Computed example of a mutant assay.
Amino acid sequence: MDLSAAVWRKSSRSSDNGGQCVEVATNLPNAVAVRDSKDPHGPKLRFTPAQWRAFVGGVKSGEFDQPA
């Protein structure tokens, strides 16, 4: 998939201290792309909008939380 038109954004909760951040591009037709902010020319993941919504929903509901 050609990602040259991707508009990448980082979470407003991310800092500029070189932490572990991802960037997301949601402006693509029928796709959401994700990349490592420290390696913008490296590999990217591509999801359908439905897959991305399911992932974000799982994060919000605590599906991926580590046991205490």
Rank of each mutant, 00 (worst) to 15 (best):
F64E: 13
K10C: 03
G18R: 08
A6E: 01
L45W: 05
R53P: 04
L45H: 06
A31K: 13
S11Y: 00
K60C: 12
A5W: 06
P67G: 10
V32I: 14
T26R: 13
G62R: 14
S11H: 06
K44W: 02
Q66H: 03
S15P: 01
D2I: 09
W8T: 03
A68S: 15
D16N: 15
A6L: 03
S15N: 15
S11P: 01
K38Q: 15
L3S: 08
V7C: 03
V34I: 15
A50L: 14
R35W: 01
R53S: 15
V7Y: 01
Q66Y: 02
A68V: 08
G19K: 07
V22E: 12
A31N: 12
P40S: 12
W52V: 05
Q66L: 05
G62T: 02
G58M: 04
G58A: 07
D39R: 07
F55S: 09
A68T: 10
F55V: 02
A5T: 12
G58E: 10
S4A: 14
A31V: 11
K60G: 05
S37W: 05
N17F: 06
P40V: 15
A33D: 04
D2T: 10
G19A: 04
A6R: 00
A68K: 13
S37M: 02
R35M: 08
E63F: 00
Q51W: 02
N27L: 03
E63H: 14
P67L: 15
W8D: 07
F47H: 15
S37Q: 04
T26F: 00
Q66P: 03
L45Q: 10
T26K: 07
Q66N: 11
S4T: 13
R13E: 04
W52R: 03
L28W: 00
L28F: 00
R53W: 05
V56W: 02
T48G: 10
P67S: 07
H41M: 15
S11R: 06
R13P: 00
A50G: 11
N17G: 00
P49V: 10
A54C: 11
E63N: 08
N30W: 03
S11D: 14
V34G: 11
P43E: 14
K44D: 03
D39L: 02
V7H: 08
W8N: 06
V24W: 01
M1E: 07
V32Q: 08
